[in-house]
């Protein structure tokens, strides 16, 4: 494929692209919903992060890897992923202000209040939006981007 500017040639067919364009935002939104309501209903950081990662992967399958790498470069993924873990660690470290590692230094949770439950929602966000979603997507991307040249090394050794 030499026509790099013509993005219509990349990825899947027009039908898939159109459907994806409609649904990818909804899937992303649903993932964010699950993350943010993780402390009052079933779900949480990992489940929500997984759904967010699936939306990225769907986007990538439909439009091709160049399109998504234009939006999130590979380097950015690994940086943001590390930042997610560090953010989680900082939340845990701030617990030392209350005397213990992982101590809940915010006010305790109230039933049926979205903005409550101490550090749990923040940890969920740090884990889901950065760590799990980008981590999973990064794994997928790395497996896709592996330069694939079978038998090359074998022949070299036999010579």
């Amino acid at each position: 494929m030499k026509a790099k500017n013509n993005s219509d040639n990349k990825g899947m067919s027009l039908i898939v692209k159109t459907v994806t364009r409609i649904f990818v935002g909804l899937i992303l939104l649903y993932g964010i919903y699950i993350v943010l309501h993780g402390h009052v209903s079933p779900g949480g950081g990992f489940a929500g992060g997984f759904i967010i990662a699936l939306s990225y992967i769907l986007f990538m399958l439909a439009f091709g890897k160049e399109e998504i790498l234009k939006r999130i470069p590979e380097r950015m993924i690994s940086i943001l992923e590390s930042l997610g873990v560090i953010m989680f660690l900082v939340i845990a470290l701030l617990g030392f202000s209350g005397g213990y590692f992982f101590y809940n230094w915010l006010p305790k949770g109230m039933p049926f209040k979205l903005l409550s439950a101490g550090t749990i929602p923040i940890s969920n966000v740090a884990l889901a939006l950065l760590e799990v979603s980008l981590g999973l997507f990064g794994i997928f991307l790395v497996l896709v981007l592996l330069k694939f040249a079978p038998k090359k090394d074998l022949e070299k050794d036999e010579e």
């Binding site: 794994i139 790395v142 497996l143 592996l146 694939f148 040249a149 079978p150 038998k151 090359k152 090394d153 074998l154």
Partner: peptide
């Protein structure tokens, strides 16, 4: 990941 690399090396 390792399985892919093994396929790459051994065919």
């Amino acid at each position: 990941g390792i399985a892919i690399r093994i396929y790459e090396k051994y065919g």
